[in-house]
Design a protein around this nucleic acid. Sequence first.
DNA 1: GAATTGATTGAATGACCATTCAATGAAGGC
DNA 2: GCCTTCATTGAATGGTCATTCAATCAATTC
Lengths: 209, 209
Amino acid sequence: MSEISRTKEPRTAPPEARRKQLIEATITAISKHGIAGTTLTKVTQEAGLSLGLANFHFDSKDALLTATLQHLADEHRALWIDKSRQPDLSAAAKLQAIVNAQFHPKVCNRRKLSVWFAFFGDTPHRSAYLRTSGELDRERQRVTADLCARIIGERGYTIVSPNQVSHMLEGLFDGLWLNILMYPDLFDRNTARDQVNAYLAQCLKEDFL
Amino acid sequence: MSEISRTKEPRTAPPEARRKQLIEATITAISKHGIAGTTLTKVTQEAGLSLGLANFHFDSKDALLTATLQHLADEHRALWIDKSRQPDLSAAAKLQAIVNAQFHPKVCNRRKLSVWFAFFGDTPHRSAYLRTSGELDRERQRVTADLCARIIGERGYTIVSPNQVSHMLEGLFDGLWLNILMYPDLFDRNTARDQVNAYLAQCLKEDFL
DNA sequence: GAATTGATTGAATGACCATTCAATGAAGGC
DNA sequence: GCCTTCATTGAATGGTCATTCAATCAATTC
């Protein structure tokens, strides 16, 4: 995070710090070279550490990749889970929090999106993703469906079912992420967020803008 | 395609047939093992051919992968481009054709979606994708935006701009693809298509269902 | 200030893989 | 039936990489 001093980095650090350092370097390496091009040599070079450290702090390369994924998943979930549990917030505000989390700069930037899609796109790692984070996606979908149901219920208004809206949201979240990653000149996170909100306003007749 | 005889496959075949055979095997291999796990040995085994043939018919492994991508892109584009150019079809019918192409079983199945996302997810191959197929995505978006503009123009109705709708469509297409790939128990191509149509009906006040 | 503990290093090992190529085999022209 | 042409084969080559491990080094304890 912050530099202790200009020239004298301590040569040794607690395992937790090294683990985090290696995970950050892994994110950078994957975003630059893809998973296949991410060698332990590149990761440790990126981190400014020696090759052996990767295998010292993680059982295997695969364990490092899984830890990296878990780190991203935790970071993402932390952005909305708290608000979704506050009983005094409206359903609309909670839904809003989920949308905002999805396009929060901490999560929605090309460096990190690269990593998400690296895991989505590689069949063996996709299995690992489903094992560690699949339930998280299902959880988010259940929560959004539930929130939509409450909003629709309040109004008694029903063009679309809550379940349909939640499916559309999941699709929009991932698809807009992908387009932000691939076509940053055409898609950016702010307009993406606004468009999702506009869609919700259309569906739920709430003021999301 | 079809089996000439039960036991006697001819030992030799024209290069074009072999190329196609290898491309099909590559699609299967990528869907099973990911790009990184797709070795020429696995591809040629899958095709029932010998290792050397891969390098005989393609300059390099990378050339084979690029040809595979090109094959998928051509196949996809062919599903909608003809209809989009028929002057006697309505704008709504053309938009419909694009949506149908996106969720056509020939394209939208987990075997092929695996390959698309393999290219999307791997940074070095993503660059290759953008070079070979990036213009195709932009083209589809231009066409949908144009069609939306014509539909909106006819009605003079304007909740959302044509450009916004086309961005939403691109997002929905990719995101629903990803969810069909990852959560086939929750997402299938028919309901995905219907939901996109319902969204268009909402936006454009046309009868898309 | 020795001794102990735990972090760090990078050369060595073994596995895997793309690519090459010399040899083999089939098919059709003559 | 011989010969040319072209597809096919798979062993050999060279390179890359994850992982191991014996040696080194820093910090902490006593």
